[in-house]
């Protein structure tokens, strides 16, 4: 049964129902908690840590923690904001994110978070790790330079029998996403489009679709990501 729960976010009284995760409950109450690996409709993974909040003084990921009665949640404190910036900066320095040359630029959620936080330069040294681009599939490019290992493609892109097209291979620093070569070969156009759409960065791209939207008309050109997740109430 979904009970009504009362909780506070940054000292603001909020209510929701007990079947929600903190991210969803906050959104219901008009509070934006930044997320990156989270995708509506699939089980949360908690892999990027961007949504970290403090619940009753403990650090928890807001996308994987169910809301509960009496929670005191901190979202926009200085240390949490700095922590979130650091996570985004780490992702920018760990991969090879050449925004000026990326097809997803302007529609990229990692970039959108950096814009929202107004990160001017990462505090960490750039790693320039050696990655490769897999263009062997007839429908999609898979650029490992940009992959942030958020597991969205694994969780969302499945064939009609429910098998994941994408999966992790290797472990630790060698870990990367790869696609099942047999399933990859029979990838439908719809699934390929879906894969490009769920990828928050420009790691999975449908061939022939790059740079479709001109600069100025892309998703995050004029609207910050929080205003897209929680649109401002229109004045009547």
């Amino acid at each position: 049964m979904n009970n009504k729960v009362n909780f506070t976010i940054d000292d603001k009284e909020c209510t929701s129902t007990s079947d929600k995760y903190i991210v969803e409950a906050a959104r219901e109450n008009g509070v934006y908690i930044p997320t990156l690996c989270n995708y509506d409709g699939v089980k949360p993974a908690g892999s990027c840590r961007v949504c970290t909040v403090k619940v009753n003084k403990r650090y928890l990921t807001a996308c994987t923690t169910p809301i509960a009665e009496g929670m005191e949640i901190e979202v926009n404190t200085t240390d949490l904001q700095d922590f979130r910036n650091a996570v985004v900066e780490l992702l920018f320095t760990e991969g090879n994110h050449f925004c000026p040359a990326c097809e997803k630029s302007g529609n990229c959620e990692l970039q959108a978070l950096a814009y929202k936080f107004q990160i001017m330069a990462p505090r960490f040294p750039f790693q320039f790790n050696e990655r490769y681009i897999d263009a062997s599939n007839p429908k999609i490019y898979h650029d490992h330079n940009r992959c942030i290992l958020c597991k969205r493609c694994i969780r969302v892109v499945k064939d009609d029998k429910g098998k994941s097209v994408f999966a992790f291979e290797n472990r630790a620093r060698q870990i990367r996403i790869n696609f099942d070569s047999k399933l990859g070969e029979v990838l439908t156009d719809e699934l390929a489009e879906k894969a490009m759409e769920v990828c928050p960065v420009g790691s999975i791209l449908v061939k022939g679709k790059g740079f479709k939207d001109p600069i100025g008309t892309r998703k995050f050109d004029h609207t910050p990501i929080d205003k897209i997740v929680i649109p401002e109430k229109q004045n009547i």
Binding site: N96, F98, F128
Partner: peptide, 18 residues
């Protein structure tokens, strides 16, 4: 002041970094 992506992260010339 670093102005531009190349000054900040190497930019397109840094594509040769690996």
């Amino acid at each position: 002041i670093s102005f531009g992506e190349c000054a900040i992260m190497g930019g397109l010339p840094a594509l040769r970094n690996d």
